[in-house]
């Protein structure tokens, strides 16, 4: 059966979704990622969806769930690379993706993850912004 690989880079997990996911595969990714956060003690999760041609309500819910679960497990999730047509469609569909942090690309995503993790470690940083 297909599986979406999860790469570990430092204290971050990186997932790049390169296939047109059917629902079971999306659920499996959700489970795999949640387990991997615990076993690898990751602090950040980056999900690259630049290859995804659509995000429907099911995949949207998966992204929301991953963000919520990682938060409970003391990790931050950032979704990167959403295509403009996907963003337009998602808003019209009525899916707000509240709770999911996003960044334009992998570089900015890593930056955001570092920032979010540092913020949590040192609350004083937040006051200076």
């Amino acid at each position: 059966m297909d599986q979406i690989p999860i790469l570990k880079i430092g204290d971050c997990l990186l997932v790049s979704i390169q296939v047109d996911m059917h629902d079971r595969l999306a659920l499996q990714l959700q489970d795999d990622l949640t387990n991997k956060i615990v076993t690898s003690r990751a602090r950040g999760v980056m999900i690259d969806i630049s290859a995804l041609e659509i995000v429907d309500s099911f995949i949207g819910r998966m992204l929301n769930n991953i963000a919520a679960m990682s938060k409970v497990l003391d990790a931050v999730t950032v979704v990167v690379g959403m295509r403009p047509a996907v963003a337009i469609t998602l808003v019209e569909l009525g899916l707000a993706l509240t709770g999911v942090r996003t960044a334009l690309n992998v570089d900015k995503g890593l930056e955001l993850i570092r920032h979010l993790i540092d913020d949590e470690q040192d609350p004083d940083d937040r006051r200076e912004e």
Binding site: I54, F58, A85, V86, E92
Partner: peptide, 11 residues
Amino acid sequence: VDQTKIVTAAS
């Protein structure tokens, strides 16, 4: 954009 919309609706 229109392709994405109808494919999403179909999904």
